[in-house]
């Protein structure tokens, strides 16, 4: 069975305006729309396209998080994932611990490819994929904008600061995906109905033999420094005069 494992995270939706709680203990999430991390959605879309091309037999989606992650897993099943794994925990895990969980699941699932988003849009850490590749002692190709699979290998084009870099990696490997890899499909109503019947297995950290260790403590959340609103100028000449006055030209 040629299997792709896709890691997803439930995050505050992309369109929600984030506000820090007045007491600095977190950000306001009550009643806020939650979604699949957009980068992870792109990872899943890529996995589905690989399967639809016949280069994989099964797409398994996995998340690590509290019970209320299930709607996001169902969304992934509705998109086309074959089954879902939910490692349920109320303790937020650090990326190294999440990578450790994924590493353990790899032993069970034996994927030839693991796809994840390049970062989650909530904590913006951008660590889990690379950490998983290290723990697994396998190749990583981050920030992918194109993935081509050949026998036992993948050619991955990466969006890097200099432009586009292409790597060849032996499989199995971890690939983290960037925005321009694909455009995820919309979920249709019949697919949502079908997804309700697809397998969603719940696991615990204990059942995987994992005891997460916190190495980082968050002391406080603050709103960012605000830029003060500037002035309007009426035309190009006035703009240049203002910039010269400020010593910028």
């Amino acid at each position: 069975m040629k299997r792709i494992l896709v890691g997803i995270k439930r995050v505050v939706d992309y369109n929600v305006r984030i506000r820090v709680k007045p007491d600095g203990s977190g950000v306001l999430t009550d009643g806020v729309k939650m979604s699949v991390n957009p980068f992870d959605e792109i990872a899943l879309e890529e996995a589905l396209r690989i399967k639809e091309r016949g280069a994989a037999d099964e797409v398994v989606v996995v998340t690590v998080g509290p019970a209320d992650c299930q709607p996001q897993l169902r969304t992934c099943l509705a998109m086309g994932a074959d089954r879902a794994l939910h490692v349920q925990t109320d303790t937020p895990l650090e990326p190294l611990a999440t990578a450790g969980v994924l590493r353990t699941l790899i032993e069970r699932e034996q994927p030839f490819l693991v796809l994840l988003g390049k970062q989650a849009i909530d904590d913006d850490n951008g660590q889990t994929g690379q950490m998983l590749a290290a723990l697994w002692d396998r190749p990583q190709a981050t920030f992918a904008s194109k993935i081509e699979l050949t026998e036992g290998k993948a050619q991955v084009t990466r969006e890097v600061d200099a432009g586009l870099e292409t790597l060849e990696v032996d499989l199995p490997a971890v690939v983290t995906v960037d925005l321009r890899l694909n455009e995820p499909r919309y979920v249709k109503l019949p697919d949502i109905m079908k997804a309700k019947k697809k397998p969603l297995d719940t696991l615990t950290l204990e059942s995987l033999g994992i005891t997460p260790r916190a190495q980082l403590k968050t002391l406080r959340y603050e709103p960012p420094a605000q830029r003060s609103k500037g002035v309007r100028v009426n035309d190009a000449a006035e703009l240049l005069a203002a910039l010269k006055h400020k010593g910028l030209l």
Binding site: V20, I121, D124, L216, T218, Y221, E222
Partner: peptide
């Protein structure tokens, strides 16, 4: 920064 810079965290590395 987290949340695309919409919040700033202060974190302490433990132990």
């Amino acid at each position: 920064p987290i949340y695309a810079g919409n919040a700033v965290l202060t974190v302490e590395v433990l132990d």
